[in-house]
Design a protein around this nucleic acid. Sequence first.
DNA 1: TATTGTTATACTCTATAACTATA
DNA 2: TATAGTTATAGAGTATAACAATA
Lengths: 136, 136
Amino acid sequence: MHDPLLSYPGYCLRRANNAMMAELGSRLAPLEMRQTDASALILIGANPGVTASALGRRIDIQRANMVPLLNRLEEAGLIIRAPIDGKSQGLELTKEGREKLAAVVAVIDEFERELLERVPPEHRDHLLPALQTLWR
Amino acid sequence: MHDPLLSYPGYCLRRANNAMMAELGSRLAPLEMRQTDASALILIGANPGVTASALGRRIDIQRANMVPLLNRLEEAGLIIRAPIDGKSQGLELTKEGREKLAAVVAVIDEFERELLERVPPEHRDHLLPALQTLWR
DNA sequence: TATTGTTATACTCTATAACTATA
DNA sequence: TATAGTTATAGAGTATAACAATA
């Protein structure tokens, strides 16, 4: 079949994203983590005390949609919500959260390593900087 | 805020995809086209007589989900379903479909051009081949 | 007055299962 | 027996509007 779509970077970006995110999702599933859960866990680990609002802005998730995400992490015993003032809460990892974070990072590091290995060596180092210019 | 996610190609792939697809979606909206509609229209135009099943396999959309998509295109007068045998239908563009296709391709070509322009010249030619290896 | 956290809700996209009819 | 087209449905993910309480 003739496929003009293959010459479109945007189309290939979408297909590559779909394929890679499906793969990552299936690797995180045994840890009972979604991709957004993993992103949040990593950022809370790197920024203890961050608020839900600031975290949502960083990973581009609406405030309203942060609520079920953080509820999930809290109910799993991975984070606590510590009041900062009467309005804000600082998010912190629990001991279980730090252990889960280590497991998540191990999965993601392996995933990212294999992702880059799929890219031919002559293109490999260009991928990350190219992608970063498309949204930052 | 410290953000370890920025060093992950997979994460940047997702963010780049979200940003670019949101942009493309907003450019296709005035044409009353979704991205999958546009992909289907392009492939039907390039492969007259293709079946719904073959088209779905090519653009990775389940058979079941092709139905509302093709209904949309047919009700908009853009395609016809021409029986091949008692089981299959060949998809064809109508005159309106060919006109819509031209408009869609114009929008996408401009979008793709601007996408590539955002990528620094030293990385630009590496993007498409790198992305293609991630799903083909 | 702007921001935080929250609730409720709707919409899109996608996945799955099942069915009929035909190759 | 495998495939094409279809229907119905359920689950994610996300977007929007509104609210109370606080900075």
